[in-house]
């Protein structure tokens, strides 16, 4: 159900660009206004959302501990899964962010025989997520050649390494290939696995489809419907130095690509895509497991009504005296 909402939404948006560009010729809208607005929304929205999180305190010390605590000196503590130093926390977060370590632990439960469970290692989701995020990063870095002058040699080298596959296929980047496969996997698992399908919302499909739209339009521009890249870069450079002008001689496909990118980054702060900054703030992952050693302060720690010893003794003084338990007041 949600899937069809998302697909029709995407088609509607493509239609919007087609009408806008081919029909009315709103080049400035798509090439100047929307991208600027999207970037503004992205930066402002991103910061706003992070500040919003920052405005709530972390009242309690709640790391999810996943390893041996630091206690007696002769018991080997696990500084990554149960970090007791800031270095440990950094390592834990870095492993999580760079290698998606939690997903690597993933396992599937199966019923092997009646009332017998079998746990199967399942690295597919990890592979798909790694493939997707890393190729996305590579693609992002590759696109820096449109944004930077002179192009840093790192970008050139990255591009050359990424295109080593040109030996095998005409003009295709490895990262493009991988991201398309990864997106297909991530999309299909949402459609095929009943459990994942059940939890998916239209917005989940929508984000995937938007990224798929960006990737596919990009790949198509690279492979078949070529675009004058110099014009594109000139346009980007002009935008960056705030002398906007629509690019000359680029095709509709480019506008679709651009519109979807704008859409994605504008939608970013409104959506689950905020998991990117969110992971850094996750209190279960970014705290040290030293809570018995370092007192954590709760800024709103308000006084509560307690049952004092005096009240307690008042109620039980006689029986206590009878059995010989010491009391404060005779």
């Amino acid at each position: 159900m949600g899937l069809w909402y998302a697909i029709s939404g995407i088609l509607l948006l493509i239609f919007f660009v087609v009408i806008g560009i081919e029909g009315i010729g709103l080049y400035s809208l798509f090439a100047i206004f929307i991208p600027y607005a999207a970037i503004l929304l992205f930066v402002v929205g991103f910061i706003y959302r992070v500040l919003k999180w920052a405005s709530s305190p972390v009242p309690f010390h709640i790391p999810t501990v996943s390893g041996q605590q630091k206690s007696l000196p002769w018991i080997k503590a696990d500084n990554i899964n149960s970090p007791y130093t800031t270095g440990g926390v950094v390592k834990r977060l870095a492993l999580e962010i760079l290698l998606f370590r939690s997903l690597l632990k993933n396992e599937k439960v199966e019923i092997d025989a009646p009332h017998r469970l079998l746990f199967r290692t399942s690295v597919l989701l990890w592979l798909g997520a790694m493939a997707f995020h890393w190729s996305l990063l590579v693609i992002l870095l590759r696109h820096l050649r449109f944004f930077l002058e002179p192009v840093p040699s790192v970008v050139v080298i990255l591009q050359r390494v990424d295109s080593i596959f040109q030996n095998l296929l005409p003009i295709l980047y490895i990262s493009d290939l991988i991201i398309v496969i990864a997106l297909a996997y991530l999309f299909l698992r949402r459609v095929i696995y009943p459990q994942v399908k059940y939890i998916s919302l239209p917005s989940d499909y929508f984000v995937l489809l938007t990224i798929a739209g960006i990737a596919l339009s990009g790949v198509l521009m690279r492979l078949i419907f070529k675009v004058d890249l110099v014009q594109v870069k000139e346009w980007v450079m002009a935008m960056l130095s705030f002398r906007p002008m629509p690019p000359k001689g680029v095709s509709l496909l480019f506008y679709i690509h651009l519109f979807f990118v704008s859409l994605l980054i504008a939608y970013f702060p409104l959506s689950k895509l905020m998991h990117m900054p969110g992971i850094f703030l996750s209190p279960t992952k970014n705290m040290r497991n030293t809570s018995r050693n370092d007192r954590h302060i709760n800024p709103w720690n308000h006084p509560v009504k307690v049952h004092t010893y005096e009240e307690y003794e008042e109620e039980f003084r006689n029986p206590m005296k009878e059995v010989g338990l010491p009391v404060e007041k005779e």
Partner: peptide, 12 residues
């Protein structure tokens, strides 16, 4: 990108 291009003086 804005800083990069400004520093390199090649923004235009």
């Amino acid at each position: 990108p804005i800083w990069h291009n400004t520093v390199s003086g090649k923004a235009r």
